[in-house]
Simulated scan of single mutants.
Amino acid sequence: MIENKLPLISNVMSSTDFKALVQRLYALQEERVEAYKLFNEGHEAYLRTGPHYDFEHYKQLVHEITKAFSGISKKVLDIKERLNQDFDRTDLAAHIEQLQNKEKVKLELTAKLQLAKQSAQDHPDDEGCQEKVQEIRHDIIKNQQALSEILQDLKFDSEEPE
């Protein structure tokens, strides 16, 4: 009689593990959001030190943020691997791959935006600098929309029965 119930217990644990893994992924995305907030606030503080910028403090911020993003990314890739191997959810692993690619683009665009903002601050009469800032902001918005769509697809697909 007990043997008949063991697979049921195993499936419940598996389902619980799966849900915990997906929830961990969302928590890591929230950590990324917080890291971007700190990164942007730090850059704004850096810009306020112009025209003789305090580059050493900003360089330290970039180092810390890079470490944080790298750690988050590693954990996300571990989740991707577990979803793929332990749960045979290649669909979710593919979403995470897309997510990682868009997050990489977001970080690159954020760095470009920060450089463009500094350039616009240093050259207030150069309309090209202001246009560049707006162009990059637009690209960030498009990238954020793509990220939201990927997360929505991941949410939908992770709620489907396995």
Rank of each mutant, 00 (worst) to 15 (best):
K112D: 08
Q100K: 12
Y46R: 02
K67T: 10
D157T: 13
R24Y: 02
Q98R: 13
P161G: 15
H138V: 01
G42H: 09
S148V: 14
D91E: 05
R89W: 00
K104W: 07
L77S: 13
F87W: 00
E81G: 01
I65G: 07
L6Q: 07
F87M: 00
T90N: 05
S158T: 04
K132R: 14
L151S: 11
K132Q: 13
K75E: 15
H123I: 00
S158V: 05
E34K: 09
Q145G: 03
L154W: 03
K102L: 12
K74C: 07
S73G: 14
L92S: 01
Q85G: 00
L6I: 13
L77G: 07
H138F: 09
A116Q: 07
P51Q: 08
I72Q: 08
K80T: 05
D139I: 12
N40I: 03
L147V: 13
K104P: 03
E103I: 01
I140W: 01
Y58H: 07
Q130L: 03
S10D: 07
K5H: 05
I141E: 15
L109I: 04
Q100F: 09
N143M: 11
Q60M: 09
E31V: 09
K37L: 13
N11G: 08
E135T: 10
Y26E: 09
Q29N: 14
Q121E: 13
F55D: 12
F39E: 02
K80V: 03
Y53H: 06
H63Y: 03
F87Q: 02
E160I: 06
Q152N: 14
Q152I: 11
Q29P: 07
I2R: 12
H43K: 04
M1T: 09
L115C: 14
L147Y: 06
D86C: 05
